[in-house]
Design a protein around this nucleic acid. Structure first.
Lengths: 216, 216, 216, 216
DNA sequence: TATGAATGAGACTTCATTCAT
DNA sequence: AATGAATGAAGTCTCATTCAT
């Protein structure tokens, strides 16, 4: 970025970089919200990490809440869209698709800062109702609906046994959400926790439990 | 104050209140930590609800963190002890015991203020490492060990199939923890969520998945 | 204040003086609101002048607006009450009473910091609607009603000619309000202004204009 | 921008806008100063309403204060000049002229945004001494002198009785100023106020009071 | 001529903790 | 044992002004 014209970038105070600023701020915000949560994130710190002044933050985002929403729009929603696309183009079994989705979720979310957003939102929803509603509508319900449809399809195709696909979707998702939460809460203090193993077990049990050939 | 009339415990309300103070404070602290979380709980509010002054709080608890630990000792640990006792006295199948434990957990924890403590701790662990360690050691690991032992027993008795009982314990517990978290985060915004149904499904799938007669 | 027990007042940081604090703060607030206006008054400055920390302000007054209202209650309303009493006990002519009231108003309001409150309120009403309503109801309307009654009485007694006493009250009061405003705005820059003379002229013209024996 | 098509003033909107800029800025500034006052007026808002950028403001006016002075020069001073002219061309009685001047003042000032400038200046003079001096010298003193001369003339002509025409001018003007102030402060909260009625009463009383045939 | 990104000082307000009484 | 007045650091947000482009 700007490599060709950056000769005096270090020395001048006014660097006009409208296009790059939001990205830098959003990255710093993601990092902070993810690791500290909403309330404990200090905008001064975000600004510092983005290399701008506190005032500049308000040039791009009108409040702390707006900044958070922007982080969700910028980083979280595209991940959901990606999963949705992949489901549309899937040709194999639903079971196989779900294994793949968990795997990608692990790589793209759990092991990145994004999992911190999930955790943050769950952790602070009750103190920030406006944010809670926003997140519920744009992230939670959309994801839940997406997975429920997948399970429904699996039932129709005879891969899964009859069940309430809506709650099955919750049962499928909540351990993933849980691992994201855990990752950013007690896991760092809890050496004995192998998240991959936990997810594998979860997936294994879930698929056994929902399979057509499960004895139930 | 009260010097003149303190001869008898029945008649002097000062002496009696002295012993009641911590309980009143702890109750108010539980309520606040549970509903608002650690950072957002104001000691002024706790004091007010306990009917004492802010200064008095510091007479009994040396800091906000100490107050929280006392809440855990007073309200959370006894619940674990109770479950442990019940397991010891159990005469039926492990499966049956686990169903019963979930049911009691639902009544004694999920539907009381205690679930808020679970949620709070998970939510704010990363911002309060000292608390995190305390909770991990005294609550999490103890509970996990307890359940792992149960599953191990179930395997030995031939009720459950061979599996990593340590991770199976996590798989069993995490949905419970998750429902406690959810209860205090997005559930109030999310009409469509029936926690009982969620727990039933979870237990059903879990037991199917771990059963000896599961095809796997 | 506290002369008898002030031996260590200078050296200790925690001086418990609940009774005196509000008065000290209110005095500092009056001074600042009066000379700078509402928006331009800095609570830090008020605190400093009152000899307390910024936080202490919020122990006694929950916001800047509340502090202003308290100033009005403490200093302005008693002045109105005093005038009302005096009117009740008046035995001479209404004309004479009004001359006396103007004289006292000059001494107790115009030449004290209180005139600054009048000016402040007029100056910033439009930017602080909540304050405007409060002041209008508690100060303006009460004063206006009081004077209107006086004029009405004067008409009934035959001292004054028939006229709309409500608007006559405004005509009587507005030059007084105006002089208070002027005092705190351009007067300090305007050497040629003799407020006493202005008030005398005003009163003279007003009484001539309203007199029964005015030719009109 | 506009370099390619700037040959003709009719067709090129760039050249023309260049000349219009100050007028648009001044109009926006008048509106804002008038309704919000000096301190509370945000240059960002002025710029937006003028359809220019914040930077452009500083191209034409070197500071917020300079912008205000320009507003006075552009809108206020011409009004005074107009009144002066009218006085010069007056052929009837002074009394009649003064009635007419009040009427025009009502139309051209009181009921336009200009009254807001009067109010603003009075309201904020003490916080902006530089502005205060400017306004006093260019507006207040000039107007006052003009009216004093009129009254002096009236006395000489035998229309008015002997009096201090300088203070009589103040007595004449201050209710007008007062009504401008009131209009922009508490009037909007005070339904019961009829400004026309107030001015009529004022004028009536004033003319009665100053008339030759007043008994005094 | 015109832009608008960037700044940074400073405002109000909150709250865990202290300690004289 | 109990109080509650007092503190002060810290946090979010605002806005006149600057200057590279």
């Amino acid at each position: 970025m700007g490599e060709l014209v950056s000769s005096n970038e270090e020395t001048c105070r006014w660097r006009r970089r409208k296009e790059e600023r939001p990205a830098e701020i959003l990255a710093a915000a993601l990092k902070n919200f993810s690791s500290k949560g909403f309330a404990a994130t200090k905008l001064a710190e975000v600004a510092k990490e983005a290399g701008v002044s506190k005032g500049t933050l308000y040039l791009y985002f009108e409040s702390k809440e707006a900044l958070f929403k922007a982080v969700v729009n910028e980083f979280v929603l595209p991940q959901i869209a990606k999963a949705e696309e992949q489901a549309e183009q899937n040709t194999g079994s639903i079971k196989h698709l779900m294994v793949k989705l968990v795997e990608q979720w692990r790589i793209n979310i759990l092991e990145t800062e994004l999992s911190g957003i999930t955790k943050m939102m769950i952790a602070e929803a009750s103190n920030f109702p406006e944010l809670a509603t926003f997140y519920l509508e744009n992230v939670i319900q959309r994801t839940r609906g997406f997975v429920a449809n997948l399970i429904k399809l699996g039932i129709e195709r005879g891969e899964f046994r009859q069940c309430n696909y809506d709650y099955a979707a919750r049962a499928f998702l909540s351990p993933m959400v849980f691992s994201a939460i855990w990752q950013h809460s007690l896991a760092p203090f809890d050496d004995s926790y192998d998240m991959n193993e936990y997810l594998n077990i979860h997936l294994d049990i879930f698929l056994r439990g929902i399979s057509k050939d499960s004895l139930g």
